[in-house]
Nucleic acid binder design. Structure first.
Lengths: 203, 203
DNA sequence: GTCTATATGTAGATAGAC
DNA sequence: GTCTATCTACATATAGAC
Protein backbone atom coordinates (compact mmCIF):
# COMPACT_ATOMS: atom_id res chain seq x y z
CA UNK A 1 0.00 0.00 0.00
CA UNK A 2 2.55 2.55 1.06
CA UNK A 3 5.79 2.07 -0.82
CA UNK A 4 6.66 5.08 -2.94
CA UNK A 5 6.63 7.62 -0.12
CA UNK A 6 9.13 7.38 2.72
CA UNK A 7 9.15 9.49 5.88
CA UNK A 8 8.30 12.59 3.92
CA UNK A 9 9.70 11.87 0.51
CA UNK A 10 13.00 13.36 -0.58
CA UNK A 11 11.53 14.48 -3.85
CA UNK A 12 8.87 16.46 -2.02
CA UNK A 13 11.46 18.03 0.25
CA UNK A 14 13.46 19.08 -2.79
CA UNK A 15 10.40 20.50 -4.50
CA UNK A 16 9.42 22.53 -1.48
CA UNK A 17 12.95 23.83 -1.04
CA UNK A 18 13.32 24.62 -4.74
CA UNK A 19 9.99 26.37 -4.79
CA UNK A 20 10.99 28.55 -1.87
CA UNK A 21 14.35 29.55 -3.32
CA UNK A 22 13.16 29.98 -6.91
CA UNK A 23 10.30 32.24 -5.84
CA UNK A 24 12.62 34.32 -3.71
CA UNK A 25 15.60 34.60 -6.04
CA UNK A 26 14.25 33.82 -9.47
CA UNK A 27 15.78 31.42 -11.98
CA UNK A 28 18.99 33.37 -12.60
CA UNK A 29 19.52 34.25 -8.94
CA UNK A 30 19.00 30.73 -7.61
CA UNK A 31 21.99 28.53 -6.78
CA UNK A 32 21.60 24.77 -6.78
CA UNK A 33 23.74 24.81 -3.67
CA UNK A 34 21.18 26.93 -1.86
CA UNK A 35 18.33 24.64 -2.86
CA UNK A 36 20.29 21.64 -1.61
CA UNK A 37 21.02 23.33 1.73
CA UNK A 38 17.41 24.37 2.10
CA UNK A 39 16.32 20.77 1.49
CA UNK A 40 18.97 19.41 3.83
CA UNK A 41 20.70 17.33 1.18
CA UNK A 42 23.61 17.83 -1.21
CA UNK A 43 23.78 19.06 -4.77
CA UNK A 44 24.34 15.65 -6.36
CA UNK A 45 20.97 14.48 -5.15
CA UNK A 46 19.24 17.33 -6.89
CA UNK A 47 20.63 16.09 -10.16
CA UNK A 48 19.63 12.56 -9.29
CA UNK A 49 15.97 13.50 -8.95
CA UNK A 50 15.84 16.27 -11.53
CA UNK A 51 18.37 16.11 -14.30
CA UNK A 52 19.30 19.77 -14.35
CA UNK A 53 18.32 23.18 -13.07
CA UNK A 54 15.82 23.83 -15.83
CA UNK A 55 13.96 20.58 -15.16
CA UNK A 56 13.91 21.30 -11.46
CA UNK A 57 12.46 24.70 -12.21
CA UNK A 58 9.80 23.18 -14.43
CA UNK A 59 9.11 20.47 -11.88
CA UNK A 60 8.34 23.04 -9.23
CA UNK A 61 5.43 24.27 -11.28
CA UNK A 62 4.12 20.97 -12.48
CA UNK A 63 3.99 20.01 -8.82
CA UNK A 64 1.90 22.76 -7.38
CA UNK A 65 2.08 26.32 -8.57
CA UNK A 66 -0.45 25.91 -11.33
CA UNK A 67 -3.14 24.61 -8.99
CA UNK A 68 -3.16 28.01 -7.37
CA UNK A 69 -4.24 29.62 -10.58
CA UNK A 70 -7.15 27.21 -10.73
CA UNK A 71 -8.02 28.08 -7.14
CA UNK A 72 -8.14 31.79 -7.90
CA UNK A 73 -9.96 31.50 -11.18
CA UNK A 74 -12.39 29.02 -9.76
CA UNK A 75 -13.33 31.38 -6.96
CA UNK A 76 -16.35 32.93 -8.65
CA UNK A 77 -17.69 29.84 -10.33
CA UNK A 78 -20.89 29.87 -8.29
CA UNK A 79 -21.44 33.62 -8.40
CA UNK A 80 -24.42 34.69 -10.47
CA UNK A 81 -23.90 38.45 -10.44
CA UNK A 82 -20.92 40.41 -11.71
CA UNK A 83 -20.47 42.31 -8.48
CA UNK A 84 -20.42 39.19 -6.32
CA UNK A 85 -17.97 37.61 -8.75
CA UNK A 86 -15.64 40.58 -8.39
CA UNK A 87 -15.83 40.34 -4.61
CA UNK A 88 -15.12 36.62 -4.65
CA UNK A 89 -12.21 36.97 -7.05
CA UNK A 90 -10.53 39.76 -5.12
CA UNK A 91 -10.91 37.90 -1.82
CA UNK A 92 -9.55 34.66 -3.28
CA UNK A 93 -6.63 36.41 -4.93
CA UNK A 94 -5.58 38.38 -1.86
CA UNK A 95 -6.01 35.43 0.50
CA UNK A 96 -3.94 33.18 -1.72
CA UNK A 97 -1.18 35.70 -2.20
CA UNK A 98 -0.96 36.46 1.49
CA UNK A 99 0.27 32.88 1.84
CA UNK A 100 2.92 33.40 -0.85
CA UNK A 101 3.52 37.13 -1.05
CA UNK A 102 6.45 36.81 -3.45
CA UNK A 103 4.54 34.74 -5.98
CA UNK A 104 3.11 37.55 -8.13
CA UNK A 105 6.49 39.19 -8.64
CA UNK A 106 8.08 35.84 -9.35
CA UNK A 107 5.51 34.94 -11.98
CA UNK A 108 5.67 38.17 -13.95
CA UNK A 109 9.41 38.07 -13.66
CA UNK A 110 9.92 34.61 -15.07
CA UNK A 111 7.21 35.17 -17.62
CA UNK A 112 9.18 38.15 -18.81
CA UNK A 113 12.34 36.09 -19.04
CA UNK A 114 10.78 33.26 -20.98
CA UNK A 115 7.10 33.33 -21.80
CA UNK A 116 6.99 29.81 -23.24
CA UNK A 117 7.73 28.03 -19.99
CA UNK A 118 4.75 29.28 -18.09
CA UNK A 119 2.18 29.69 -20.82
CA UNK A 120 0.35 26.46 -20.02
CA UNK A 121 0.42 27.61 -16.43
CA UNK A 122 -1.56 30.72 -17.34
CA UNK A 123 -3.99 28.84 -19.50
CA UNK A 124 -5.41 27.06 -16.48
CA UNK A 125 -7.84 29.91 -15.85
CA UNK A 126 -8.76 30.39 -19.48
CA UNK A 127 -12.37 29.26 -19.33
CA UNK A 128 -13.02 31.15 -16.12
CA UNK A 129 -11.56 34.28 -17.65
CA UNK A 130 -13.80 33.89 -20.68
CA UNK A 131 -16.80 33.45 -18.42
CA UNK A 132 -15.90 36.54 -16.44
CA UNK A 133 -15.58 38.61 -19.61
CA UNK A 134 -19.02 37.40 -20.68
CA UNK A 135 -20.49 38.40 -17.32
CA UNK A 136 -19.10 41.90 -17.80
CA UNK A 137 -20.43 42.16 -21.31
CA UNK A 138 -23.90 40.99 -20.25
CA UNK A 139 -24.02 43.38 -17.30
CA UNK A 140 -23.12 46.14 -19.70
CA UNK A 141 -25.88 45.22 -22.12
CA UNK A 142 -28.38 45.11 -19.28
CA UNK A 143 -27.28 48.62 -18.38
CA UNK A 144 -26.11 47.66 -14.89
CA UNK A 145 -22.66 49.08 -15.51
CA UNK A 146 -21.21 51.82 -17.61
CA UNK A 147 -19.69 51.37 -21.03
CA UNK A 148 -16.34 49.77 -20.28
CA UNK A 149 -14.30 47.20 -22.20
CA UNK A 150 -14.42 43.86 -20.35
CA UNK A 151 -10.71 43.36 -20.88
CA UNK A 152 -9.93 46.75 -19.47
CA UNK A 153 -11.93 46.01 -16.34
CA UNK A 154 -10.13 42.73 -15.86
CA UNK A 155 -6.75 44.40 -16.22
CA UNK A 156 -7.75 46.98 -13.62
CA UNK A 157 -8.91 44.35 -11.15
CA UNK A 158 -5.73 42.34 -11.55
CA UNK A 159 -3.67 45.52 -11.17
CA UNK A 160 -5.37 46.55 -7.94
CA UNK A 161 -4.94 43.06 -6.48
CA UNK A 162 -1.43 42.20 -7.60
CA UNK A 163 0.43 45.48 -7.43
CA UNK A 164 0.73 45.82 -3.65
CA UNK A 165 2.52 42.45 -3.57
CA UNK A 166 4.71 43.26 -6.53
CA UNK A 167 5.67 46.70 -5.28
CA UNK A 168 5.76 45.68 -1.64
CA UNK A 169 9.34 46.82 -0.89
CA UNK A 170 8.59 50.21 -2.40
CA UNK A 171 5.39 50.59 -0.40
CA UNK A 172 7.17 49.42 2.72
CA UNK A 173 9.85 52.02 2.14
CA UNK A 174 7.55 54.90 1.24
CA UNK A 175 4.96 54.34 3.91
CA UNK A 176 7.17 52.75 6.51
CA UNK A 177 5.23 49.51 6.67
CA UNK A 178 6.38 46.42 8.50
CA UNK A 179 5.02 42.91 7.87
CA UNK A 180 2.05 43.35 10.18
CA UNK A 181 1.06 46.68 8.65
CA UNK A 182 1.28 45.15 5.20
CA UNK A 183 -1.07 42.31 6.15
CA UNK A 184 -3.52 44.80 7.63
CA UNK A 185 -3.45 46.82 4.43
CA UNK A 186 -4.19 43.74 2.33
CA UNK A 187 -6.99 42.73 4.68
CA UNK A 188 -8.57 46.15 4.26
CA UNK A 189 -8.19 45.92 0.50
CA UNK A 190 -10.38 42.82 0.49
CA UNK A 191 -13.19 45.28 1.13
CA UNK A 192 -11.94 48.48 -0.46
CA UNK A 193 -10.88 47.09 -3.84
CA UNK A 194 -14.36 45.75 -4.73
CA UNK A 195 -15.89 48.98 -3.44
CA UNK A 196 -13.45 51.02 -5.49
CA UNK A 197 -14.19 49.05 -8.65
CA UNK A 198 -17.95 48.82 -8.25
CA UNK A 199 -18.31 52.55 -7.52
CA UNK A 200 -16.45 53.17 -10.73
CA UNK A 201 -18.44 50.92 -13.05
CA UNK A 202 -21.96 51.05 -11.61
CA UNK A 203 -24.34 53.00 -13.82
CA UNK B 1 35.85 74.12 -23.58
CA UNK B 2 35.28 70.66 -25.01
CA UNK B 3 37.87 68.29 -23.59
CA UNK B 4 36.30 65.60 -21.46
CA UNK B 5 33.95 64.21 -24.12
CA UNK B 6 35.31 62.46 -27.19
CA UNK B 7 33.29 61.36 -30.18
CA UNK B 8 30.55 60.07 -27.96
CA UNK B 9 32.37 59.17 -24.78
CA UNK B 10 33.22 55.58 -23.97
CA UNK B 11 31.81 55.95 -20.48
CA UNK B 12 28.47 57.04 -21.90
CA UNK B 13 28.45 54.12 -24.33
CA UNK B 14 29.08 51.74 -21.45
CA UNK B 15 26.37 53.29 -19.34
CA UNK B 16 23.81 53.05 -22.11
CA UNK B 17 24.75 49.45 -22.84
CA UNK B 18 24.73 48.51 -19.16
CA UNK B 19 21.41 50.18 -18.65
CA UNK B 20 19.89 48.26 -21.52
CA UNK B 21 21.17 44.88 -20.38
CA UNK B 22 20.54 45.41 -16.66
CA UNK B 23 16.96 46.47 -17.27
CA UNK B 24 16.35 43.50 -19.50
CA UNK B 25 18.09 40.79 -17.51
CA UNK B 26 18.34 42.16 -13.99
CA UNK B 27 21.44 42.19 -11.81
CA UNK B 28 21.76 38.41 -11.43
CA UNK B 29 20.97 37.65 -15.05
CA UNK B 30 23.38 40.20 -16.54
CA UNK B 31 26.80 39.09 -17.80
CA UNK B 32 29.61 41.62 -17.99
CA UNK B 33 30.48 40.01 -21.30
CA UNK B 34 27.08 40.95 -22.69
CA UNK B 35 27.41 44.53 -21.55
CA UNK B 36 30.84 44.75 -23.19
CA UNK B 37 29.51 43.35 -26.46
CA UNK B 38 26.56 45.69 -26.40
CA UNK B 39 28.90 48.63 -25.89
CA UNK B 40 31.28 47.41 -28.58
CA UNK B 41 34.28 47.12 -26.25
CA UNK B 42 35.84 44.36 -24.16
CA UNK B 43 35.29 43.31 -20.59
CA UNK B 44 38.52 44.77 -19.23
CA UNK B 45 37.40 48.24 -20.15
CA UNK B 46 34.28 47.90 -18.07
CA UNK B 47 36.45 47.37 -15.03
CA UNK B 48 38.64 50.27 -16.00
CA UNK B 49 35.71 52.70 -15.93
CA UNK B 50 33.69 51.06 -13.18
CA UNK B 51 35.60 48.93 -10.71
CA UNK B 52 33.16 46.05 -10.53
CA UNK B 53 29.72 44.90 -11.50
CA UNK B 54 28.04 46.41 -8.45
CA UNK B 55 29.52 49.84 -9.12
CA UNK B 56 28.50 49.65 -12.75
CA UNK B 57 25.00 48.80 -11.63
CA UNK B 58 24.95 51.74 -9.25
CA UNK B 59 26.47 53.99 -11.87
CA UNK B 60 23.64 53.24 -14.26
CA UNK B 61 21.20 54.78 -11.83
CA UNK B 62 23.26 57.71 -10.73
CA UNK B 63 23.55 58.55 -14.41
CA UNK B 64 19.96 58.69 -15.45
CA UNK B 65 17.31 56.45 -14.00
CA UNK B 66 16.59 58.62 -11.00
CA UNK B 67 15.85 61.68 -13.09
CA UNK B 68 12.87 59.83 -14.48
CA UNK B 69 11.32 59.62 -11.06
CA UNK B 70 11.68 63.37 -10.74
CA UNK B 71 10.06 63.80 -14.14
CA UNK B 72 7.05 61.72 -13.14
CA UNK B 73 6.64 63.17 -9.69
CA UNK B 74 7.14 66.68 -10.97
CA UNK B 75 4.36 66.25 -13.50
CA UNK B 76 1.57 67.71 -11.38
CA UNK B 77 3.54 70.50 -9.74
CA UNK B 78 1.45 73.21 -11.40
CA UNK B 79 -1.90 71.49 -10.99
CA UNK B 80 -4.23 73.18 -8.53
CA UNK B 81 -7.00 70.59 -8.41
CA UNK B 82 -6.77 66.96 -7.38
CA UNK B 83 -8.44 65.70 -10.53
CA UNK B 84 -6.12 67.57 -12.85
CA UNK B 85 -3.15 66.35 -10.82
CA UNK B 86 -4.29 62.75 -11.26
CA UNK B 87 -4.64 63.27 -15.01
CA UNK B 88 -1.20 64.84 -15.26
CA UNK B 89 0.43 62.12 -13.19
CA UNK B 90 -1.11 59.26 -15.15
CA UNK B 91 -0.19 60.83 -18.49
CA UNK B 92 3.39 61.50 -17.39
CA UNK B 93 3.82 58.01 -15.98
CA UNK B 94 2.47 56.20 -19.03
CA UNK B 95 4.35 58.40 -21.50
CA UNK B 96 7.61 57.86 -19.68
CA UNK B 97 7.18 54.12 -19.36
CA UNK B 98 6.26 53.73 -23.01
CA UNK B 99 9.83 54.81 -23.69
CA UNK B 100 11.23 52.16 -21.31
CA UNK B 101 8.55 49.52 -20.95
CA UNK B 102 10.75 47.16 -18.93
CA UNK B 103 11.64 49.78 -16.33
CA UNK B 104 8.79 49.20 -13.86
CA UNK B 105 9.43 45.48 -13.64
CA UNK B 106 13.14 46.06 -13.32
CA UNK B 107 12.71 48.51 -10.48
CA UNK B 108 10.38 46.42 -8.35
CA UNK B 109 12.56 43.45 -9.06
CA UNK B 110 15.82 44.94 -7.92
CA UNK B 111 14.10 46.68 -5.05
CA UNK B 112 12.92 43.30 -3.92
CA UNK B 113 16.41 41.87 -4.17
CA UNK B 114 18.07 44.65 -2.22
CA UNK B 115 16.01 47.55 -0.99
CA UNK B 116 18.98 49.58 0.26
CA UNK B 117 20.49 50.20 -3.13
CA UNK B 118 17.58 52.06 -4.62
CA UNK B 119 16.10 53.77 -1.60
CA UNK B 120 17.60 57.16 -2.37
CA UNK B 121 16.30 56.65 -5.87
CA UNK B 122 12.74 56.41 -4.56
CA UNK B 123 13.13 59.34 -2.25
CA UNK B 124 13.42 61.69 -5.21
CA UNK B 125 9.67 62.08 -5.38
CA UNK B 126 9.16 62.36 -1.65
CA UNK B 127 8.03 65.95 -1.46
CA UNK B 128 5.76 65.57 -4.46
CA UNK B 129 4.20 62.51 -2.90
CA UNK B 130 3.59 64.38 0.32
CA UNK B 131 2.01 67.21 -1.61
CA UNK B 132 -0.23 64.81 -3.49
CA UNK B 133 -1.39 63.18 -0.25
CA UNK B 134 -2.22 66.62 1.12
CA UNK B 135 -4.25 67.44 -1.97
CA UNK B 136 -6.27 64.26 -1.46
CA UNK B 137 -6.83 64.99 2.21
CA UNK B 138 -7.96 68.53 1.48
CA UNK B 139 -10.32 67.46 -1.28
CA UNK B 140 -11.80 64.99 1.16
CA UNK B 141 -12.31 67.61 3.81
CA UNK B 142 -13.97 69.90 1.28
CA UNK B 143 -16.32 67.05 0.47
CA UNK B 144 -15.26 66.84 -3.16
CA UNK B 145 -14.40 63.18 -2.89
CA UNK B 146 -15.58 60.27 -0.80
CA UNK B 147 -13.96 59.11 2.39
CA UNK B 148 -10.83 57.34 1.16
CA UNK B 149 -7.37 57.03 2.68
CA UNK B 150 -4.93 59.17 0.66
CA UNK B 151 -2.34 56.40 0.73
CA UNK B 152 -4.83 53.90 -0.58
CA UNK B 153 -5.73 56.13 -3.48
CA UNK B 154 -2.08 56.59 -4.36
CA UNK B 155 -1.49 52.84 -4.30
CA UNK B 156 -4.45 52.33 -6.62
CA UNK B 157 -3.24 54.94 -9.08
CA UNK B 158 0.25 53.48 -9.17
CA UNK B 159 -1.23 50.00 -9.58
CA UNK B 160 -3.39 50.98 -12.54
CA UNK B 161 -0.46 52.72 -14.24
CA UNK B 162 2.34 50.28 -13.60
CA UNK B 163 0.71 46.89 -13.77
CA UNK B 164 0.17 46.66 -17.53
CA UNK B 165 3.92 47.15 -18.03
CA UNK B 166 4.84 44.72 -15.30
CA UNK B 167 2.44 42.04 -16.43
CA UNK B 168 2.90 42.75 -20.12
CA UNK B 169 3.93 39.23 -21.18
CA UNK B 170 0.91 37.81 -19.38
CA UNK B 171 -1.45 40.30 -21.00
CA UNK B 172 0.18 39.71 -24.35
CA UNK B 173 -0.35 36.00 -23.93
CA UNK B 174 -3.90 36.16 -22.60
CA UNK B 175 -5.23 38.75 -25.00
CA UNK B 176 -2.96 38.00 -27.92
CA UNK B 177 -1.45 41.46 -28.06
CA UNK B 178 1.51 42.42 -30.18
CA UNK B 179 3.66 45.51 -29.63
CA UNK B 180 1.37 47.81 -31.55
CA UNK B 181 -1.74 46.62 -29.72
CA UNK B 182 0.03 47.12 -26.42
CA UNK B 183 0.89 50.72 -27.25
CA UNK B 184 -2.68 51.38 -28.29
CA UNK B 185 -3.93 49.97 -25.00
CA UNK B 186 -1.61 52.22 -23.02
CA UNK B 187 -2.64 55.23 -25.10
CA UNK B 188 -6.28 54.53 -24.30
CA UNK B 189 -5.45 54.13 -20.62
CA UNK B 190 -4.15 57.70 -20.55
CA UNK B 191 -7.83 58.62 -20.72
CA UNK B 192 -9.54 55.67 -19.09
CA UNK B 193 -7.43 55.40 -15.92
CA UNK B 194 -8.21 58.95 -14.73
CA UNK B 195 -11.86 58.44 -15.64
CA UNK B 196 -11.92 55.15 -13.76
CA UNK B 197 -10.36 56.69 -10.67
CA UNK B 198 -12.35 59.90 -10.64
CA UNK B 199 -15.66 58.11 -11.10
CA UNK B 200 -14.77 56.05 -8.09
CA UNK B 201 -13.79 58.83 -5.70
CA UNK B 202 -16.07 61.71 -6.72
CA UNK B 203 -18.74 62.38 -4.13
C1' DG C 1 42.51 54.28 -22.92
C1' DT C 2 42.25 50.03 -24.95
C1' DC C 3 43.59 45.70 -25.83
C1' DT C 4 45.10 40.32 -24.96
C1' DA C 5 46.05 37.07 -21.74
C1' DT C 6 45.34 35.25 -17.40
C1' DA C 7 44.18 34.64 -12.51
C1' DT C 8 40.64 33.30 -9.35
C1' DG C 9 36.33 31.89 -7.82
C1' DT C 10 32.17 29.44 -8.30
C1' DA C 11 28.40 27.70 -10.89
C1' DG C 12 26.10 23.44 -12.80
C1' DA C 13 26.80 18.81 -13.59
C1' DT C 14 29.08 13.98 -13.37
C1' DA C 15 31.74 9.77 -11.50
C1' DG C 16 31.97 6.48 -8.53
C1' DA C 17 32.20 4.73 -3.60
C1' DC C 18 29.01 3.16 -0.13
C1' DG D 1 19.35 6.68 -2.69
C1' DT D 2 22.84 9.30 -0.83
C1' DC D 3 27.21 10.74 -0.25
C1' DT D 4 32.34 12.83 -1.44
C1' DA D 5 35.27 14.18 -4.84
C1' DT D 6 35.87 16.01 -9.18
C1' DC D 7 35.18 17.84 -13.96
C1' DT D 8 34.13 21.46 -17.03
C1' DA D 9 32.51 25.80 -18.18
C1' DC D 10 32.15 30.35 -17.46
C1' DA D 11 31.81 34.69 -14.62
C1' DT D 12 34.16 38.46 -12.44
C1' DA D 13 38.21 40.64 -12.03
C1' DT D 14 43.32 41.71 -12.71
C1' DA D 15 48.07 42.11 -14.97
C1' DG D 16 50.56 43.93 -18.17
C1' DA D 17 51.65 45.00 -23.17
C1' DC D 18 50.70 48.61 -26.50
Amino acid sequence: MAGTTKEQGTEQRILRAARKVFIQKGMAGTRMREVADEAGINKALLHYYFRDKQRLFTGVFKAGASEQFSCIWGSFIHCDTLFSAIEAFVAAYLDRMLEDPLLPLFIVNELNRDARGLSEFIDRGRESRARFLRMVEEARQRGEIIDIQPRELLVNIMALCAHPFIARPMLAHIHGMNNEAFRRMIQERRKTIPEFIIRSIRS
